[in-house]
Every structure is written in structure tokens, then in C-alpha cells.
Amino acid sequence: MKDKQARRAAMERRWELRSCGRHGHLTYAPDESGLASRLRADSAQGEAWRCLRCGDYALGPATASGPADDAPVPLRGKALRDAFIIRLLAIERLLRGVFLIAAAYVVWRFVGAKDSVQRVFDKDLPAVRDLSRRTGIDFADAAPTRLLQRALDAGHSTLVLLAAGVLAYGLLEILEAYGLWIMKRWGEYVAVVGTAVFLPLEIYELTEKVSALKIVAFLINLAAVAWLIWSKHLFGVRGGRAAFEKERESTSLLEVERTAAQV
């Protein structure tokens, strides 16, 4: 048990050190003298302050100062690892949103070009049917031909609504990506609701035709919804927002030192 906890602590420390390596140490000099003395040290090179993220001492004056209650609360340990996962989700949502917006543009362009496409279809289809008779291959009933025919059969208003719906979905994905990337709680709610709404549609598509890509996409979305709700205490789960804030504050180095100073 102790070995497992030590490995977990070592892993979490690597995340913290990696973050400090990219962004620099985050030091803070609280106005409370007793607390400040626990974070400050003197060395042959001068004063040093403990980093609120990784806990190591960094030479030089603190990067910020003020009341302890105003000190920043950097992500540490599990929260820092979770932030990496959330930003991976944000990138995936961004790519999906860009793809959907591009798809909406293609549908919109198709609406304007529908008449010309219909003329080409009407002109060439008889030749395709003649070729089918000669070769014995039914090109007219091929999947791409049937898909194009269904699109041509759709009314103008239907295609416009389709383009608008795909565009709205793409913009929702972009909003999810932005909210997740900046680590806002509303972004997590938008991601959960926006993803969960389409899970029944994904299940229906799987009943129509199963493919490895559909299964993987469904499992990723299902896991993302469950993980966000559980780990971020959304919708009141596991104590809700209050429990989430308490969990985050419990990892704060400043809070740990303040508690130790009061003992």
C-alpha cells in the first residue's frame, strides 16, 4: 500500500515539475509573517521561496505577494493530470467542430449548385445504365449513386435546415473546446450536456450498422461524460461544487502550511 502511494506521489510530482519547467515556478510571499517564514528560506545565493506548485525552493524574491487568501491556487497532483486529459478532450472537440463547420459549408454550397449537379446526373445516368447492361454491373444502384440521388431528391428547405443543424453542432463543439481549454466549470457542463444529447443517436447508428470507428467514438464519448461528471463533481455528484473546491484546496501548499502553522 505504501509503495503504491509512493509511486502515485512520484508520478504527481513529475507532472508538477514538468509544468514548472514549462511555465516557471509560482512563488508567493503572504503578508502573514508566520506563514511567510514557513515558505521563505535563506541561502548563500540569497533568499528563496517555495513554489506553490511543485514545492521546491526557487531563488530570488517571490513573484507575487499579498494576503494569503488572495494567493493563487495552482493545479497540483491529480488535478494537474486531469487538466492534461481535459485539454486533450478540448483538442478533440476543436477538430470535430472544424470538421462539422466545413461539412456545413459543403452542404450549403451543394444547395446552390444543386441544379447543375442534377443536370449532370440526368445527362450521364442513361449512359451509366447502358454501361451497366453491357458489363452486368449495376452502377446505378451503387452506394455513391444512391447517396447522390437521395441528396438530389431532398428539398431546398431540407438541405438548408441540414446545413444549419450541422453548423450549429460544429459551433457547439467549438464552444465546448474553448470552455474545456480554459478550464472553466461551465465548459465542463457544456461538454457533458452536448455530448450526452447525441449518445442516443450514436446508439441508433450502431443498431443500423456497426463499425470499429463508430464503436470507438461511442466509447470515447461515453467515457468522457462519465469521467467529467465523476471527477469534477458535476450535477451534485459526490458533493457537487463544494466538494470539488474543498478537494482542490486540500492540495494547496499554502493551505497545508497554514494548517501546520496553526497546530
Rank of each mutant, 00 (worst) to 15 (best):
L201D: 12
L162C: 08
G155V: 00
W49L: 01
L201C: 10
S157P: 00
E257L: 15
A261E: 14
R129E: 15
F198Y: 12
V256N: 08
L253N: 02
M11A: 14
G60N: 04
A143C: 05
R22Y: 14
V107K: 00
L147M: 14
Y105F: 15
I85K: 06
F99Q: 13
F198D: 01
R248K: 10
A142M: 13
A223Y: 11
R7D: 15
A243R: 07
A260H: 12
G60H: 06
S132D: 06
A113K: 09
G55R: 01
V192S: 02
L80Y: 01
S19V: 02
A62H: 05
K209M: 11
Q149Y: 09
A142C: 08
K232C: 03
S250C: 07
D153H: 07
A168I: 13
L17M: 12
F198A: 06
R258P: 02
L213E: 15
T27E: 00
L59V: 09
V166N: 02
E32M: 07
V237R: 03
K78V: 09
R96S: 13
R18M: 08
S132L: 03
Q118P: 02
L100Y: 08
L152F: 03
T251K: 08
H156V: 02
L35D: 00
A104L: 06
L206I: 08
E247F: 07
C54D: 00
R133G: 09
R53N: 02
V256A: 13
L95Q: 13
Q45A: 13
R248D: 04
R40M: 14
T135W: 06
R87S: 02
G165I: 11
R40W: 09
C54H: 03
R133Q: 14
I91F: 15
V107E: 04
A154E: 00
R241Y: 10
G60D: 05
Q118I: 05
S43R: 08
